[in-house]
Design a protein around this nucleic acid. Structure first.
Length: 210
DNA sequence: CGCGTTTGACCTGCGC
DNA sequence: GCGCAGGTCAAACGCG
């Protein structure tokens, strides 16, 4: 991902105000590591685009309430810093396992989780809806969205200990733009990254002997 | 056979 | 209370 200037976002404020980057200022944004949140995964470049044209238009962050949604005109994301997030997720998972029923499984819990999970959203200019971000995702739903020609797809990380979700939706106003919203934090390494790095690390270890 | 997708049903929150 | 919209579940299905 050359041409992208990684940039730290200012620490999330306690207000619910939205902090958006203008599209003409492409950059990756994520909070300082002290917030215990991972940066959003960096999607791989899409070959149909010219090299100098960034795929990522912007990433926006905000902190505040859980009540939000991606507007068709102004995709936005929220981030909520909550150090107890993993506890909440684990509690939800246990509850889900012990209270199975069709359709309504874990409903209240999902609301609880929703209120405490960090979210990142960003736009990508791509013909493909699915970005290869290195993680494995399982699609668990698709819904038609009001005032949008395109449905919203719901994905969950397939890693058994990870409950990160993402939503993918194409803008009806600009069909070349895909809005991806990540919810939660991966608690495991990126598989693809590890696949790539492991042989390199081994080689480095081997060479370091000499 | 395992894993991922599709899709209709169901649940919750919210506005009126 | 009702209807709508968003989010989730899980059976059925497809594919390698």
């Amino acid at each position: 991902m050359e041409g992208h200037q990684a940039q730290y976002y200012p620490p999330p404020s306690t207000s619910s105000s939205l902090a958006l980057l203008p599209p003409q200022n492409p950059s990756y944004l994520f909070p300082p590591s002290s917030t215990s949140m991972n940066p959003p995964p960096l999607p791989e470049p899409h070959h149909h685009q010219q090299a100098q044209v960034p795929d990522i238009d912007w990433i926006s962050l905000l902190s505040g309430h859980h009540d939000h949604q991606i507007n068709n005109n102004e995709p936005a994301a929220m981030v909520e810093v909550n150090n107890n997030e993993n506890n909440v997720i684990e509690a939800a998972r246990e509850e889900r396992g012990s209270n199975k029923r069709k359709g309504g499984e874990g409903r209240k819990i999902s609301v609880m989780k929703k209120a405490s999970r960090p979210r990142f959203a960003f736009q990508t200019r791509s013909a493909d809806d699915i970005l290869d971000d290195g993680y494995r995702w399982r699609k668990y739903g698709q819904k038609a969205v009001k005032n949008s020609l395109y449905p919203r797809s719901y994905y969950r990380c397939t890693h058994h200990t990870c409950s990160v979700k993402k939503q993918v939706q194409r803008l009806s106003k600009d069909t070349s733009i895909v809005v991806t919203t990540y919810e939660g934090v991966h608690n495991h390494p990126c598989e693809k990254l590890m696949e790539t790095l492991t042989p390199l690390l081994k080689q480095m270890q081997f060479l370091s002997r000499f």
